[in-house]
Write a protein that binds this DNA or RNA. Structure first.
Lengths: 154, 154
DNA sequence: TCGTTTCGCCGCCGATCCTGCGGCAAACCG
DNA sequence: CGGTTTGCCGCAGGATCGGCGGCGAAACGA
């Protein structure tokens, strides 16, 4: 079923990571296969879950989202379902782009985009701090995005 | 040229963020416009830079990248070009998915994916710590990815 | 008010692209 | 060695794309 990924598969993935809307025929001639074989590989990569989907990359600033922040969140360990409740709430919050449970000095690292500082104040107060079990937060505002593509190495 | 994004534009963006490879005709009937008008809007959104590109979302674990880490990096402020040199090196490193310059207790927050702990040890020692000007690092290993889509709110 | 311009949308149509089908050759296996 | 599997190809019908001309409504100015 799930074999090791072929060299052509990796090439397909590498191309599709950056040019997700490329037509199949052009993808085919770039990897040196026929469109039929290439389309077959693409379909298989999706069915096997290697490719989980396709998406457009948007410019946040042109959408009015000018502030990117990372928030370190610490939870009260007392309530046992605090983690589940926090995770569920975070998944519902549209400002939260990512949220990771980490090991170390705090519990969750949250990445969020908002319009500006007032909007972040609102998000912090009404969104994060009002969640039950949130003990402490520490905010880092991003001054410059050095690298943002998030392209996986192949 | 100058762009107030109208309601249909936002709907297009919202759909394309999650289904970037949807054919134009289906996109058209979902937003209630003709394929021609929809394609015209899509082209305009790309030309104006709102849509910066399209990409496939891949499953890191199926590619053998089982460890996600965040690294807080502090630089020596002594050398003036240390920041530029660090940024350039980070852009070249394939393991680094994101790198942000932040204000607060440290200078850069790095998000990286590697195969496992030994691979991270190698990346830390030969990649990050060997860069000139790197003063101190603090690593947080991700135990659970609560939210990873990175979809912008519209 | 009314003619003119502009803008966004539509329908049309040739070119392009997609996808299921049959065939073929190499690899695999009992 | 014969049969099966696997991956690829070419083909063809149907779907999709993208450029072109036209149309109606809103904006504009005299």
């Amino acid at each position: 079923m799930t074999d090791e990924l072929d060299r052509v598969d990796r090439q397909i993935l590498k191309i599709l990571q950056r040019e997700g809307r490329i037509p199949n025929v052009e993808l085919a001639e770039r990897v040196g296969l026929s469109p039929t074989a290439t389309g077959e590989r693409l379909r298989r990569l999706q069915k096997d879950g290697v490719i989980t989907g396709f998406g457009a990359r948007l410019d946040p600033h042109l959408l009015g989202l000018n502030l990117l922040v990372f928030v370190e969140v610490s939870l009260d360990k007392t309530t046992p379902d605090a983690f589940a409740r926090f995770a569920a709430a975070v998944r519902r919050a549209p400002e939260v782009l990512e949220c990771h449970m980490v090991g170390g000095g705090f519990d969750y690292l949250v990445k969020a985009r908002v319009a500006d500082m007032p909007a972040y104040r609102r998000f912090l107060g009404e969104g994060l701090l009002s969640l039950p079990g949130v003990n402490n937060t520490r905010t880092y505002a991003v001054m410059e995005e050095v690298k943002s593509d998030g392209v996986l190495p192949l």
